[in-house]
Design a protein around this nucleic acid. Structure first.
Length: 421
RNA sequence: GUGGGCGUAGCUCAGCUGGUAGAGCACUCGGUUGUGGUCCGAGAUGUCGCGGGUUCGAGCCCCGUCGCUCACCCCA
């Protein structure tokens, strides 16, 4: 065993898998950019209170999963467990919500939760998120959902589902809560579950244990308590999704782990991932801006798990579209040739062609083997004869054919050859 | 925080009822001078996670410990 190991439960990506990770991240971000969302680069830590206020003290995330520490000034700092609250804080702090609404931003990066790791669950994980603040138009809900949907679809994923529900507005939930508590009080539950119910009775819908699920079969569902306004909003969102040919199922038992969600709420689940099947989720948060000191603006957003999306991609046997090799492999024989190789590589790269130089190779045969392993479609050898004539053989590895080009015209010749393949 | 499984070469793993370690892949070199893929040959590689115990002797048995992993709780 090596002396130093990465901290427990972190996900690390190195070649070649890091290329797939990068591709997943960019693919998930792309639809947001196309819809006019712009980058918001955020700190990875915030004042602890921001999360306890925003995410909600009753949540597991806040009550037992935060990486919290004291900085040198005695302030309580927490590594961000999710992205929405920090994004809204930045929007408020920098008055981004004074411009035309809705404010539409995206972000990507690491998040932290101090949980016991398992398949698809890490202590440091990566998400892509978007937030749209300042509009309660149901069309915005549909857009946000469609952006996530397009991202997963563009990865090539097939075996994922979209589940949606509405958590209603304040009135809807107050009415439901009374009946739900009444129902729950008749159930036979263990102590820790009763405690959870006290904090947020909706949580019990998420319990996976059969003895609890069974008892919850007949529980009153929030969807049946929606106010007229909430119900119309939810129905309109559904209508839009249908128009976009985005398939979904309504899951009245869906509960999100964060307290701020209201109204439209959704989750993307993948069928091949085991216990941690959620690859993304989000929803409206109509009281959150005010909660953390901003204007009373409504908003909606999502977080998509890059780690889990990558696992899903691999589970479906999909390949990233980005190649792991360079366009050209450049072999230099001798000291003089090495200088020329560096210069040639510079010229080739200026044409936007990727090139790798064979470093430290003395034997041509071995250099060729390496070229083959690299997978580059073209190879050029630079030796004494090439230096004296100023012309090189450009070899296409797949066919084994070579053609002679002058060093100065190599970038253009390569461009042609690559385009012609 | 609770429970199950597992820790042997860079990777995937084998190692029978205890006798101080092996395979495949990968890697390095070679199969006559500057041309790869296949094939053949040669080579390097391990404190068998760590500590203790039982034993003449432990990779194998016992205890502890650390780590990884899967699941529960919960979530991306």
């Amino acid at each position: 065993m090596t002396q130093y190991q990465a901290p427990k439960g972190v996900s690390e990506y190195f070649p070649p898998r890091s290329l797939a990770f990068e591709w997943v991240r960019e693919t998930l971000v792309a639809p947001a950019k196309l819809a006019g969302y712009n980058l918001l680069e955020l700190p990875i830590f915030e004042d602890t209170e921001l999360f306890t206020r925003g995410v909600g003290a009753s949540t597991d995330v806040v009550s037992k999963e935060m990486y919290t520490f004291e900085d040198r000034g005695g302030r309580s700092i927490t590594l961000r467990p999710e992205g929405t609250v920090g994004a809204l804080r930045a929007i408020i702090e920098h008055n981004l919500d004074r411009a035309s609404l809705p404010v539409k931003i995206w972000y990507a990066g690491a998040f932290f939760r101090a949980e016991r790791p398992q398949a698809g669950r890490y202590r440091q994980f990566y998400s892509v998120g978007i937030e749209a603040v300042g509009s309660d138009d149901p069309a915005l809900d549909a857009e946000v959902i469609s952006i996530a949907y397009e991202g997963f679809k563009n990865l090539g994923l097939k075996k994922f589902r979209l589940e949606i529900t509405s958590l209603g507005d304040r009135q809807s939930r107050a009415a439901h809560r009374i009946d739900l508590l009444k129902y729950i009080s008749t159930l036979d539950l263990d102590e820790s579950t009763k405690e959870r119910v006290k904090l947020n009775p909706l949580r019990i819908f998420d319990d996976k244990r059969p003895q609890v699920r069974l008892q919850m079969q007949e529980a009153p569902k929030l969807l049946d308590y929606l106010s007229d306004e909430s119900r119309v909003h939810f129905e309109t969102v559904q209508k839009y999704l249908q128009a976009l040919h985005i398939e979904f199922e309504i899951n009245p038992r869906m509960v999100r782990g964060l307290d701020y969600y209201t109204g439209t709420t959704f989750e993307f689940v993948h069928d091949l991932l085991g216990a941690q099947s959620g690859i993304g989720g989000g929803g409206r948060y109509d009281g959150l801006m005010e909660e953390i000191g901003g204007q009373p603006l409504t908003g909606i957003g999502f977080g998509l798990g890059i780690d889990r999306a990558l696992l899903a991609v691999e589970a479906e046997g999909l390949q990233p579209s980005t190649p792991t090799h360079s366009d050209l492999y450049l072999i230099a024989l001798g000291e003089m040739a090495k200088v020329q190789a560096l210069i040639t590589a510079q010229n080739v790269k200026s044409e936007g062609i990727s090139v790798e130089i064979a470093f430290g190779e003395k034997v041509l045969k071995n250099a060729m083997k390496r070229a083959d392993k690299n997978g580059a479609p073209f190879v050029v050898i630079l030796g004494d004869s090439e230096l004296s004539t100023g012309s090189v053989e450009l070899k296409e590895m797949k066919t084994g054919t070579t053609f002679s080009v002058t060093l100065s015209s190599l970038p253009q010749a390569l461009r042609q050859a690559l385009d012609g393949r």
